[in-house]
Design a binder for these strands. Structure first.
Lengths: 188, 188
DNA sequence: GTCTATATTTGGATAGAC
DNA sequence: GTCTATCCAAATATAGAC
């Protein structure tokens, strides 16, 4: 049998799910121990910095995954195809709406004070990548910026409402309509 | 001088602000004591049920305020005027984007388990009131429902992003554009 | 109604055996 | 790497004097 019951990356993945579900403050180390099956003391062996190191590692891992999605937007190729590919990735990333957004959770759960800069930067990275692909589609920079911001707002809102109502339709619909909203001919 | 330093309703208002800012789990009774100037033991005198009663009272009060706003939507009169009046009220209610949505906070901060039904119902009440005013404006029921849901999603998203980026423009813009989005001629 | 003091529990974190 | 035991701080909550 393996030395460790669970790999570090798998543990971080489970910890991430706890933070997404319950927010920063409500996620106790005991809870994390249960979720990972690792025992409190073992957790401190793997993450000597305690809860703060755990959440930092979660940010790092989630950041990498988001980076993959943004990479799809930045890749060469037809803008519409890039957007559709990224939407597909977003769907998987959020488990079809079942998973919360870590950013949103942290914003509303006491984690904001600790990670204010990271949070602001993450929202900005999304907007920048979306604006870039829209510019590639020939959309003027100012319009592209506005639509990109609107898309991020809708994504966040759909996740919150989906979770609050426990009805995934809000997330699913938003995902389906976003490409059209982003690329439409109209002025706004 | 008055018997009490602060009225019950004023205290609840301040407690609400703490829950909005920090979420349920991160809002300690000590923090509430500071925010209200009431002292921990006094708080338990006013709210024998402790933290849970405090948050219930907050829900009740915020619910009343939201009821006022929804009343503007349900009132007789020109639909556009009713929407504009409610948007103005929403602006005040959220302090121009400075105040978080209690619903959103509770959804992501450990309060969800305790108040799942209330939360779902509150989102539904918003959608129903908005759909009603749009139907009064002659918009078909199905389209009205969809636009109403979209408006609630945008509102929640704008509040999250505004708070995460500490830039009120997301909220302000959403508020300004919502009446047009709701009433536009187009198909969606 | 408010205060001091305190009981009780939980959470974060560490030490040291294995 | 994991475990038991433990420390310490903070949090919820209560008792009782004023």
């Amino acid at each position: 049998m393996p030395r460790t019951k669970i790999s570090r990356e798998d543990a971080i993945e489970r910890i991430a799910e706890e933070f997404r579900r319950h927010g920063y403050a409500a996620t106790s180390v005991s809870r994390i121990a249960e979720a990972t099956g690792l025992g409190r003391a073992s957790l401190y062996h793997h993450f000597p910095g305690g809860k703060e190191e755990m959440v930092r590692e979660v940010f790092r891992k989630v950041g990498e995954e988001v980076g993959q999605i943004l990479g799809l937007l930045r890749a060469p190729g037809d803008p519409r195809e890039r957007i559709l590919a990224s939407m597909h990735a977003v769907d998987r990333f959020y488990g079809g709406g079942a998973k919360n957004c870590l950013l949103g959770s942290m914003v509303l759960s006491g984690g904001l004070d600790l990670f204010a800069d990271e949070l602001g930067g993450a929202f900005g990275a999304w907007v920048d990548a979306l604006r870039g692909v829209l510019e590639d589609a020939g959309i003027p920079s100012k319009v592209a910026q506005r639509r990109a911001e609107d898309a991020v707002v809708r994504l966040q809102g759909a996740l919150v409402v989906t979770r609050g109502t426990r009805d995934p339709k809000f997330f699913q619909r938003m995902l389906k309509e976003l490409p059209g909203n982003l690329l439409e001919e109209g002025g706004a």
